[in-house]
Design a protein around this nucleic acid. Sequence first.
DNA 1: CGGGAGCTTGATAGCTGTCAATTTATGTGG
DNA 2: CCACATAAATTGACAGCTATCAAGCTCCCG
Lengths: 253, 253
Amino acid sequence: MDRWRALGVDAVTRADLLTQRLSRFASLSAEEIALANALATKSEDFPGGTELIAEGQSLDMPHLLVSGWACRFRMLPDGRRQIFEFILPGDLYGLCLRPQAIALTTAISLTPVVIADASALGEAITQPEKYPGLTLACQITASLEEAYLLNQLMRVGRQTAYERTAHLILELHERLSIVGFADETSVPIPLTQEIMADALGLSVVHLNRTLQQLRRNQLIEFKSGYVKLLQPDQLAEIADFRSPRVTRRSALA
Amino acid sequence: MDRWRALGVDAVTRADLLTQRLSRFASLSAEEIALANALATKSEDFPGGTELIAEGQSLDMPHLLVSGWACRFRMLPDGRRQIFEFILPGDLYGLCLRPQAIALTTAISLTPVVIADASALGEAITQPEKYPGLTLACQITASLEEAYLLNQLMRVGRQTAYERTAHLILELHERLSIVGFADETSVPIPLTQEIMADALGLSVVHLNRTLQQLRRNQLIEFKSGYVKLLQPDQLAEIADFRSPRVTRRSALA
DNA sequence: CGGGAGCTTGATAGCTGTCAATTTATGTGG
DNA sequence: CCACATAAATTGACAGCTATCAAGCTCCCG
């Protein structure tokens, strides 16, 4: 499970990860920034494959994924697995304002991860008057999450393997760009093809062939753990990719 | 578009629809009940095919679907359509606490509908101290909506046509039961097979054959607008159907 | 009674999954 | 640093689920 260490996937542990992302959605006061930055200071490491939340477990404590990748998924009795969404560095999970809430899905780490307790943030956003910026930013974050879930449904329900693979790559590129992990054309994707296939609703074999087709068509390059976008615009056209807009104010992500 | 009138789909307009559903999730005070019941008193009719919300439009006013069916969907440039979720009688839509929010998807009516302005409810739940029951019930409702979205993703991503069709029927049965529109074994489903296919990520032709297969196997009966569950337990087994649990308290729906 | 939407059916293609085997990459221990 | 063990990626052959195309049928409505 150390295959990603060399890629820097878990090497980067920036305390301002969350802050950087949230301040993109709302202006934060100095106090709010301090609160968000403080989260990452006391964090814990886990190897890949660690169960972070179990379906049905009570959601009493939100967490911040400081580094590494995780995902939420569900399985059928015979082993078929559907990954609902990826949790990327800077993402929050296990956050639900309502009391007595329980997790709708299991979540596991896909790479080695660093995780911080975000209960301070969870409490902060129950006081919107005191932390207006954090509250708004978290709400926007939640909307974005829904938007990504809808994208996922659109991919899996109505797009061909070719289209949906392109679409997912673009989405990951966008999300990672927001937290500064991807540049204009390069996306670190520390996923085995099996995991990617489970997210896309495809078999491993077919995903493999689809990736090769994308490569043959000069649309992407992929070496271990990295995807390079050779023709981002044409990819977006093929995938009908559009950045989600969830709010009227900011141009958004 | 009048094919459903005879089925009573839009004939039933109960003022307590919403109340009945919400009180299942939290105990409501007399004042809260009055507020919820008052919504349905001034409502408006629209024919099937009416656009209720446009993607990108600002979400300033929540609505209550008093009667009839609607759905949220998105389309690809070439016309392929994915329905994300159905909006059933007693459901709220267009509700987002955050200011400046915009709709992530378009919503249209699938049958003639009766719609009420629910802004009073939207304002009520910004005062949790005053309306604790309504607030909690709405939050649980939102969680349930997410649960149904995840179900939808599971169906479309990893289940066969046969399984996913069974699963959707069971889910609709459950949701309609909560508002008293379905009995133990009978589900009114006022959808054309084309619409159902767009929800299931299938072609009309294949859905048609799948429905016939379910019928041949003595699992369901379907006449115009109604589905009868002949062997609910076996259906649930085939579909791996489980009622969503979103909260620790109530046994939930 | 005619027209149209929705439903059904048959024939056919093709996308995607499954199975099995091979190659390549990665990680470990000597 | 090399050899082995294992995981991941590839490849080929083949089956099968699902889509597409086209035509006929049924029911409802005007």
